[in-house]
Design a binder for these strands. Sequence first.
DNA 1: TCATTCCGCTACGCTACAGTAGCGTAGTGG
DNA 2: CCACTACGCTACTGTAGCGTAGCGGAATGA
Lengths: 187, 187
Amino acid sequence: MAPDSRVQKSRAAVLAQTYELLTEGGIGGVSIDEVARRSGVAKTTIYRHWPSKAALLVEACSTIGTPPETPDTGSLAGDLTVLTERLAEQLRTARWAAVLPSIIDAAERDPDLAGLHTALHAEIMEPFTTVTERAQARGELAANREPADLVAAIAGPLFYRRWFSREPLDDAVIHHIVRDALTQVTT
Amino acid sequence: MAPDSRVQKSRAAVLAQTYELLTEGGIGGVSIDEVARRSGVAKTTIYRHWPSKAALLVEACSTIGTPPETPDTGSLAGDLTVLTERLAEQLRTARWAAVLPSIIDAAERDPDLAGLHTALHAEIMEPFTTVTERAQARGELAANREPADLVAAIAGPLFYRRWFSREPLDDAVIHHIVRDALTQVTT
DNA sequence: TCATTCCGCTACGCTACAGTAGCGTAGTGG
DNA sequence: CCACTACGCTACTGTAGCGTAGCGGAATGA
């Protein structure tokens, strides 16, 4: 059962262009006709590999997240600084930052996309949860503090500035956020 | 030049149904045909009052915000508690909470909607800015603190929980957020 | 070589939607 | 009562998009 190279090629080209269109126009900006046009793969072939547009979207979205390398500097402060700087950088430049709002919007209504949103959120935030739970195990967190609170205290203001107030995410702001979150939470 | 009652009636019915559809399906869920169907106002009449779908959307969205009654309890802590509880309540139940993601998504691309988003954001957040600046004038804020930081520290986690992590916004969480934000910022 | 699998292509049918044209009617203000 | 305005209705054009059918050709791997 050797994998047919033609299939791999077609699938890869289609997924790449779907992702491309996704970042340009959000979920609403993707059409099968346009994917076919850009990828050079015939529309009929696309439907040979995915049963519907939704299935294609879900698969394309699921490749959005970057593999999360969780840092381990030895201290919660160090870990969080690294992670927050990286998240801010992604919010400024990464492709998925332009797609997430439309996924969130769709997730408000479509159950399938809601599942996707949950998975995506978990993937993006997983390193934060990991380092925070590690710190909790080391006793760096106050007893009455939930890791989820700390994650929200950091990611919340970042997301707020990126999408709601549209304020810049410069280094000063980032370090403010990390420092404030730590003073809330550490023993 | 008395206002024609027929015009007022038609406009009101159309705007109401547009708003209704908006909350149900976001911006993408609004179609002129459906508005006409539900409102009982003929499609041609709609186009007699608004030059395009975009114009109708903008006008319908601009009526989203609730008139902000800014509290004045005398202390920053009191004001923020009132405002945060109210915001959380709106995030849980208010119509616009279901629409905002699609506006944010559209604002990423469409300049017109971006302007709308800015206006909407300013309207929703205005009370927070007001009470915070008042506190600053009273000397309740540390010298190196921007009001915008405090607003982000409160609204950020709320929004994050509502749309990203989808955690519940119960009273305990709300009061945690307010208290933490205050300890960051007060003298 | 040869059957199998995959693919591109053209051509569909169907639905939804934006926006327009023209007519006859009904409500409005004076 | 009358001129005017707004309205509803039907019908239309044009576009975009989803998803399908069937054919002939080309790559694949045994």
